[in-house]
Amino acid sequence: MNANMRAAAPTEVLRYTAFSADPDGGNPAGVVLDASALDDAARLAVAAEVGYSETAFLTPAPQGTEGAPEGRAFTTRYFSPLAEVAFCGHATIATAVALGERIGPGELLFLTPAGPIPVTVVGGDGESGPRATLSSVEPHSEPVEDKDLTEALAALGWARGDLDPEIPPRIAFGGNDHLVLAVTSRERLGALDYDFERLKELMLRLGLTTLQLVWRESAGVFHVRDPFPVGGVREDPATGAAAAAFGGYARELGIVPEESRFTLHQGEDMGRPGELTVDLRAGDPRVHVSGTAARIG
């Protein structure tokens, strides 16, 4: 072997679960804090090998980036095992906590394909560990065409009578698009069993990242599930991007007050319970999604 030839250093991939202080709960994400040596093909290969719904890849933000805290701003991209994703909430929370453990709590800025995402990390209380809050891009929502709703329900095996008329179907955006469908019973949500390929085909046609399936327990508590076949994953255990999209949608339609805090429980039906906190602030168009994260050993 030529003495000038050296094997490439292995990529360090950290593994964290987001929206849970328990490594066996929440949604696992891969985190690569220095992806400078990886092109897109290599990043996709790493994400596929890790096998989580997303892996985040960081490089330092360009110098002079407006609003960037010194040494705490990063160009951030997200890859599922099948493709790049414009924005991923749980991988953002996982990455922010990983950085907080290394460079300390404080403000971060992630420059993502969906837009700039400010993140705040605060120290833990000794039990839950550090906690991160992401601030989404400005959300919006739009109606879903009736034929597309019919196809989504057919793929899910749901009937229109299963839907909650007070939480109408819409496509909600908070960095990427999610179809919101709410049901009237916890049992209907818990019995999720869908046609993977049929739903994937519809989602690819509509440009959806996940479906945000919802049951409202009370004014401030919702249970959600997120099929993610376009990422090669049957279900996402805790979905921060969908939480941001749902927060904007819920405010826009008056389902929650303009200024409010509510909780999303996700992953219980998968045996990976997680908790996402959504904050809406009067006069602030962004949606703020908070959660803990834990290192997976």
Score class of each variant (00 low, 15 high):
residue 222 F to Y: 10
residue 268 E to P: 07
residue 183 V to M: 10
residue 198 R to L: 11
residue 198 R to H: 15
residue 262 F to T: 05
residue 260 S to V: 04
residue 172 A to L: 04
residue 174 G to F: 03
residue 236 D to G: 08
residue 217 E to R: 10
residue 258 E to G: 12
residue 223 H to E: 12
residue 208 L to Q: 06
residue 229 P to A: 13
residue 249 Y to E: 07
residue 208 L to C: 07
residue 235 E to S: 12
residue 256 V to L: 04
residue 173 F to T: 14
residue 198 R to Q: 11
residue 232 G to T: 05
residue 271 G to W: 03
residue 276 L to R: 05
residue 252 E to A: 14
residue 189 L to M: 09
residue 268 E to S: 09
residue 201 E to P: 11
residue 265 H to G: 12
residue 238 A to H: 00
residue 246 F to A: 02
residue 241 A to Q: 14
residue 185 S to M: 13
residue 267 G to W: 01
residue 182 A to R: 02
residue 200 K to E: 11
residue 255 I to T: 04
residue 172 A to K: 01
residue 235 E to Q: 09
residue 173 F to R: 11
residue 200 K to C: 11
residue 232 G to V: 12
residue 243 A to W: 06
residue 239 T to I: 08
residue 194 Y to E: 07
residue 204 L to W: 13
residue 225 R to I: 05
residue 213 L to P: 05
residue 258 E to N: 13
residue 240 G to L: 00
residue 235 E to R: 08
residue 196 F to I: 12
residue 184 T to C: 12
residue 199 L to E: 02
residue 184 T to V: 15
residue 239 T to Q: 02
residue 267 G to I: 05
residue 229 P to Y: 08
residue 187 E to H: 15
residue 182 A to N: 04
residue 274 G to P: 03
residue 197 E to K: 15
residue 231 G to P: 06
residue 221 V to K: 10
residue 203 M to R: 10
residue 215 W to F: 11
residue 249 Y to K: 01
residue 226 D to P: 01
residue 247 G to K: 04
residue 210 T to D: 00
residue 204 L to Q: 15
residue 263 T to G: 01
residue 253 L to Y: 05
residue 216 R to N: 07
residue 276 L to A: 03
residue 259 E to F: 11
residue 199 L to D: 02
residue 261 R to C: 13
residue 241 A to W: 00
residue 186 R to Y: 14
residue 188 R to C: 13
residue 180 V to C: 14
residue 233 V to W: 04
residue 263 T to D: 02
residue 208 L to F: 10
residue 238 A to T: 05
residue 252 E to D: 12
residue 174 G to M: 02
residue 229 P to T: 13
residue 256 V to A: 04
residue 202 L to Q: 11
residue 219 A to Y: 08
residue 231 G to A: 10
residue 188 R to G: 10
residue 218 S to Y: 06
residue 172 A to R: 00
residue 224 V to C: 11
residue 242 A to H: 05
residue 217 E to N: 12
residue 271 G to Q: 08
residue 191 A to G: 15
residue 238 A to R: 00
residue 184 T to P: 08
residue 241 A to E: 08
residue 192 L to Y: 12
residue 192 L to P: 09
